[in-house]
């Protein structure tokens, strides 16, 4: 959890808006540090978290969260965290041995044209249990209650690499938003990684760019991580554009802020443009 980012977004683990759909996108650089931020944030906020880790192993997320002061293993044991390890599950589908061994969640790997229904079913099953039913015995023997559900997806765009169409991925996110954000008043965070070059002549645009446009239309807050336009720098890792959309407010109100950032070993610092300690 990066406290500087919390103050930018004006949220704390005790007080945050519900029903939000946060979209993280990155270009030219790696934006996954924000996923780690939100993972540790919502775990500290005592939310029930469903994490679809499609691009890294559980031990990776575990090691990073340890540095951020949250134990994923404990959270998993307590029933607070439900973790889908895409890499591990995919092997049984990609290299089939005996039929029907793997989990159903990654059925789209068998036949990508079938869509992401099974993955959505997994999400719905894991978030829709109320804390009282799902929660296991706490330390005192009581049952732990968890707050509103949160869905985190590390890299929705990897689904496109696995053959899923953009339309199916957008359907998936729409269904998830309807269930998690609207019905259960929870939150949702998704990461989409785009290509390095932004294509100007998009006649028949496919792939992550189209996915990003579709998700930007759905979400309530976007964090766009980009490399520096002037090129690579050792002391500033890139810039992040924070953009709030007020759907229910008065009209087309939109607020934008631009920060530069640097990721450290256990945190990240955000600062206004040109005020890095390297230049001042």
């Amino acid at each position: 959890m990066f406290t500087e980012l919390n103050s930018i977004l004006n949220i704390t683990p005790d007080n945050f808006k519900q029903g939000e759909f946060v979209l993280i996108s990155d270009r030219h650089t790696d934006g996954s540090f924000l996923i780690h931020h939100f993972l540790s944030f919502y775990l500290r906020a005592r939310c029930k978290v469903c994490f679809l880790g499609l691009v890294q192993s559980f031990s990776h997320y575990c090691a990073v969260s340890q540095r951020l002061g949250v134990s994923l293993v404990q959270a998993k044991e307590k029933g607070q965290l439900i973790f889908l390890e895409g890499l591990k599950e995919s092997l049984s589908v990609l290299i089939p041995k005996e039929p029907n061994t793997g989990s159903q969640a990654l059925d789209f790997l068998r036949d990508p044209s079938a869509g992401l229904r099974s993955l959505y079913e997994f999400v719905r099953a894991s978030v829709s249990h109320t804390g009282g039913v799902e929660g296991v015995e706490g330390v005192e023997g009581g049952v732990e209650e968890w707050g509103p559900p949160v869905l985190l997806v590390d890299d929705l765009s990897v689904l496109l690499s696995l053959g899923v169409s953009v339309g199916a991925a957008l359907d998936f996110s729409h269904y998830c938003r309807a269930t998690v954000c609207s019905q259960l008043q929870g939150s949702m965070v998704m990461l989409v990684r785009c290509e390095a070059e932004e294509e100007e002549d998009d006649g028949d645009e496919e792939g992550p760019e189209r996915l990003l446009k579709g998700l930007t239309h759905q979400c309530s807050l976007t964090l766009q991580v980009q490399g520096l336009p002037t090129g690579y720098c050792r002391d500033i890792h890139g810039q992040v554009e924070v953009c709030w959309r007020n759907r229910h407010g008065n009209g087309q109100q939109m607020q934008k802020k631009l920060f530069q950032y640097k990721v450290h070993d256990k945190s990240a610092s955000f600062f206004a443009r040109g005020t890095s300690s390297a230049v001042l």
């Binding site: 890499l87 990609l94 790997l109 990508p112 690499s161 696995l162 053959g163």
Partner: peptide, 17 residues
């Protein structure tokens, strides 16, 4: 177009474990 990326995903899964 997804053959190589799917293979690389599977390879990553093998390597990580």
């Amino acid at each position: 177009s997804h053959a190589l990326t799917t293979f690389l995903y599977g390879l990553r899964a093998l390597l990580r474990s």
